[in-house]
Design a protein around this nucleic acid. Structure first.
Length: 659
DNA sequence: GCGATCAGGT
DNA sequence: CACACCTGATCGC
């Protein structure tokens, strides 16, 4: 959990993502996104009471976050006190001390964070300097450089401090696949499975409340199958998401939840209860998105550099996550080289001409930049919040958003035009209506910022950046199985489909396959960029059938699944098979992936042995042959096929071990 | 009964 | 570990 207490040194009278303790007296609140760990105290009686007394205190967030928050009855008491701020629209917010009447103004700009729907970063500009609070974010390398509002006059704004999400600020995360890569891998895997029969279904085992929407929408679009979810009312005003969801359990793709979902899975039962329509049992595979997975098996030798932080180049950087075993000071020491003091004293100059802009060409003179601002990046949407944007190149004439508040319906200025919801040609973010009902307005999806982002971008050479080094994730530990006898077939061989089977398969029932893929997606379509989350970057696949085989494959640019399977005892028919299985399992150490969800039913003794071995983990570190080439898409397909059919992929045992 | 905290789990 | 939760037990009001 974030160590951020909610307050920033420069502007201690406002609180962000924390609403308890010392934050109870804040003059204004800000919520970066709708994830529980950023909402501590937000519905506590103490704060609720304060709201009743302090009528000038408001909560500011993005339109989408407001919508998501108010959909939950527990937070509905905030309804009259939330002010949705349009993304990428500098807005002036008054900070009033109700006791003394003292008033201060601060300009805040919401920048898309790419973490989950509605997630934003907050850029504050006021008397104590410019500071940036990132919240949880996931931006692709170079994306910060494309944010116009982080720049001014052709260069990065002078940022005093950055309050940054350091979750992945660790060398072990030096390489995180792109969303696009993950998405592509998932799409193919899902395709290979659901096309087998109407009874082959996929369960997307999602943890967080939000952040997987892009996965749902892309899967739905790709296969014409809506995703089953428990609730979708929070998206009622977000058609681009809503249209891809359903509460009808009769679909092949599920993202429903249940406390005992994992248990259900063992029994070929979906969280929603579906088991066997027409008495024909379902064949389920589960895909578990996880970014952390990548940090668990990579070598910690690479140095990561932060594209984001180094670009922002602030005077100070405050980490919000302090890894165990270290201290704030130590992390700060690591961050320092990226801050101004250690850079060549002078400000880093980054020509805007290098910025990748959604719009035509980017001006590189300040003057032209001014034109840019004259044409607001984002046109305030509809009737709701009247906003006035008169941005001049460096001069902020801000917009005071006072929204339909009880007492004062505010509006602000005239610059706002009703119906000006058009997406300006340059907008590159999603414009979601925050209103409900009356809006028949649809979300404008615009090209989302490409790629997702790694909060921290690995510092690699460009060539390396272009192609994820998958081997880092799948290479087996050197200390494990070094005889090479168990190497998996090289991708080329695997693709040859001659992998012997370790086990006979019983068609589908309970193989426990799990594989991981990673990636993020650069996005495709026109889904709202803000809806793309970071967690779906990595994926863990579990099938309820099978258990011991595992393989990895990679394909350049693509994703590499890691599969592990639990083999029902009944399926273990030969000793050598079992051994092989145990063997493999013994290598997996990290488990966090559910391994052994053993078989529900009869557990034979053999099964037991297998189970024991896999108890701690079901992930296999797949060895990779040094000379082996990254698997190509076709090879991957081959693996998927095997996975889907329940066949096993031989791991080299002296035969086609490597190529 | 609710909230906060902690433990444990995925 | 932390991602972002959830459940259950305990304690206090």
């Amino acid at each position: 959990m974030s160590s951020f207490g909610g307050q920033m040194a420069e502007y201690p009278t406002i609180s962000i993502d924390r609403f308890d303790r010392e934050n109870l007296g804040a003059r204004a609140y800000f919520l970066s996104h709708c994830h529980k760990d950023h909402m501590k105290g937000l519905r506590a009686p103490t704060l609720k009471r304060r709201l009743e007394c302090s009528l000038k205190v408001y909560l500011y967030c993005s339109p989408v976050t407001k919508e998501l928050l108010l959909t939950n009855p527990k937070y509905r008491f905030w309804e009259k006190r939330i002010i949705a701020l349009e993304v990428e629209t500098p807005t002036q917010v008054p900070l009033i001390d109700e006791a003394s009447g003292e008033k201060e103004e601060i300009v805040v700009t919401l920048l898309p964070a790419g973490h989950c729907p509605g997630s934003v970063m907050f850029l504050f500009q006021g008397n104590n300097g410019t500071v940036l609070y990132t919240g949880d974010f996931r931006l692709a390398k170079g994306e910060a450089a494309r944010m116009e509002l982080l720049h001014s006059g052709g260069r990065v704004k002078d940022i005093q401090s950055v309050y940054i999400d350091t979750t992945f600020f660790d060398p072990k995360y030096y390489q995180i696949p792109s969303r696009e890569e993950c998405l592509n891998g998932i799409l193919e895997l899902v395709r290979s499975w659901i096309t087998r029969s109407p009874y082959h279904v996929v369960w997307l085992n999602c943890k967080a409340a939000y952040g997987y929407e892009y996965l749902f929408t892309n899967l739905s679009e790709q296969f014409g199958v809506q995703v089953h979810v428990d609730k979708l009312d929070m998206f009622r005003n977000m058609p681009d998401i809503l249209h891809h969801l359903t509460t009808d359990r009769n679909t092949q793709i599920h993202a429903c939840r249940h406390p005992k979902a994992e248990e259900y899975f063992q029994w070929s039962k979906l969280p929603c209860g579906n088991t066997s329509p027409n008495r024909i049992p379902l064949h389920i595979i589960s895909i578990k998105p996880s970014t952390m997975w990548f940090g668990e098996r990579t070598r910690k030798t690479s140095v990561i550099i932060k594209d984001f932080l180094s670009h922002i180049c602030p005077v100070n950087a405050y980490p919000n996550v302090i890894p165990i075993g270290t201290t704030v000071d130590k992390v700060v020491e690591i961050l320092k080289p990226l801050c101004r003091s250690s850079q060549s004293t002078e400000l880093k100059y980054k020509p805007l001409g290098r910025l990748k802009r959604a719009r035509t060409s980017y001006p590189d003179s300040e003057e032209e930049a001014g034109d840019l601002f004259d044409d607001p990046p984002l046109v305030p949407v509809r009737h709701k919040v009247p906003t006035q944007q008169t941005l001049q190149p460096e001069v902020f004439s801000v917009t005071v958003v006072s929204q339909n508040q009880p007492g004062k319906p505010r509006q602000t200025t005239g610059a706002y035009k009703e119906g000006s919801a058009q997406t300006s040609p340059m907008t590159n973010f999603v414009d979601c209506p925050e209103s409900n009902s009356e809006s028949e307005e649809e979300l404008d999806s615009v090209a989302s910022p490409q790629g997702t982002v790694d909060p921290v971008t690995p510092h690699l050479q460009k060539s390396e950046m272009d192609a994820p080094q998958w081997d880092v994730f799948f290479k087996r530990n050197d200390d494990i199985a070094d005889d090479g006898s168990e190497n998996f077939p090289s991708s080329a061989e695997a693709g040859a489909s001659q992998s012997p089977r370790l086990f006979s398969d019983s068609d589908g029932e309970s193989t426990h396959i799990s594989s991981q893929t990673s990636s993020q997606s650069t996005h495709i379509s026109e889904q709202g960029s803000q809806g793309w989350d970071s967690q779906s970057d990595t994926v863990l696949l579990l099938s309820q059938e099978r258990n011991c085989s595992d393989f990895t494959s990679l394909h350049k640019g693509g994703y590499r699944p890691r599969i592990k399977e639990n083999v029902p005892a009944s399926q273990i028919e030969q000793n050598y098979q079992k051994d092989a299985c145990s063997d493999l399992k013994s290598r997996a150490h990290d488990a966090n992936i559910v391994p052994d969800v053993g078989e529900p039913t009869a557990v034979s003794s053999e099964k037991h042995s297998t189970k024991a071995d896999s108890q701690s983990s079901s992930d296999f570190e797949i060895p990779s042959t040094p000379e082996a080439e990254l698997p190509q898409q076709e090879h991957l397909q081959y693996f998927y096929e095997k996975l889907a059919t329940g066949e096993n992929i031989l791991v080299g045992r002296n035969k086609k071990a490597h190529s």
